[in-house]
């Protein structure tokens, strides 16, 4: 069949008809065009800035150069910042997973109004901007007069106010909370739609409820777990608002550096180089997460 189709010469009329009928990739063309003009082109321009020398907003010289990239890669600070970006994103992704799973599981176990309430509760934080939520954490975690420390002090649990703000802890707490919905939503869908007979089968074969959860429910949700991990990792790794606000002035990550070099220092070349590094490493990590997830869920290929 495929051979026949390939051998047949394709008349232009047929191509036109295919476009009009909306076969193949044609329905996606408007979206692809939009993304090309408003995402790919600006991004390529930005990245290109890293390979030329810019002085006072003008490109100096007429050759491409790798010097700026080499300089950045031999800079120990860049590697330190990348490591911090990585581990903060990795730990907060795992924290979101641990916190999101019970919520998604509860959603799957409830019915009617409770389901709606949980869904609304999960989605409603997305209605405010991440900036607002980061400021809210500032109020909660901040200094002696922050809500957290006041509560702990007045209850007598601590006698010195905890120093959370302007530490890794504040960044982790803020990021985990702000990115929680992106982990819950993929899990919700999969856990609510799962086949309960598999759990009955597991019980019937002698597994306990807990055993069934870890041997059947969790493995079956591996594709959703890794979709959520990849998503949350990517947005945590590239987030610069939370580290800047909750980490304090001297706290920096790769993403914060991109922002500062471009907007504050106005060193566009260095900003662009760091952005290139941020983007490529982020892409590599996400690919790694997805590849690992696919390996764990090899059975999933058989079902599709």
């Amino acid at each position: 069949m495929a051979l026949e189709a390939a051998a047949r010469p394709r008349a232009p009329a047929t191509l036109l008809r295919r476009i009009l009928h909306g076969n193949g990739i044609w329905p996606a063309v408007p979206a692809l065009l939009y993304l090309f003009v408003f995402l790919a082109l600006p991004m390529l321009t930005l990245l290109a800035f890293g390979f030329v020398t810019i002085d006072r907003g003008r490109v100096v010289g007429d050759t491409w150069t790798l010097d700026h990239l080499k300089a950045a890669l031999s800079d120990e600070l860049v590697w330190r910042l990348m490591w911090r970006s990585f581990w903060v994103a990795a730990v907060s992704s795992l924290l979101t997973l641990i916190l999101a799973y019970p919520v998604a599981y509860l959603f799957a176990e409830t019915k009617g109004i409770w389901r709606t309430l949980i869904l609304v509760a999960v989605i409603s934080p997305l209605l405010t901007s991440a900036l607002v939520r980061a400021y809210a954490w500032l109020v909660i975690l901040g200094g002696r007069r922050g809500i957290l420390n006041q509560t702990l002090l007045s209850l007598g649990i601590v006698d010195q106010p905890l120093r959370i703000l302007n530490t890794d802890w504040a960044v982790l707490i803020g990021m985990t909370q702000i990115h929680l919905p992106f982990m819950i939503l993929p899990l919700l869908a999969v856990l609510a739609e799962r086949d309960r007979r598999l759990e009955e089968a597991s019980l019937n074969l002698g597994a306990s409820q807990t055993g069934t959860f870890f041997r059947v429910v969790v493995p079956m949700s591996v594709p959703a777990i890794f979709a959520g991990l990849a998503l949350v990792f990517a947005i945590s790794y590239t987030n610069f608002i939370v580290p800047q606000l909750l980490g304090g002035g001297s706290y920096s990550t790769l993403a914060v550096q991109v922002y500062e070099q471009t907007i504050v220092v106005l060193d566009w070349t260095r900003g662009a180089v760091l952005a290139t590094i941020l983007l490529t490493t982020c892409f590599a990590f996400v690919m790694g997460i997805v590849a690992f997830g696919n390996r764990l869920a090899r059975w999933n290929e058989a079902t599709t």
Partner: peptide, 12 residues
């Protein structure tokens, strides 16, 4: 022992 209507084999 229980054999389910659509077998309920573990796909993973």
């Amino acid at each position: 022992g229980y054999v389910f209507q659509s077998y309920a084999l573990f796909p993973h």
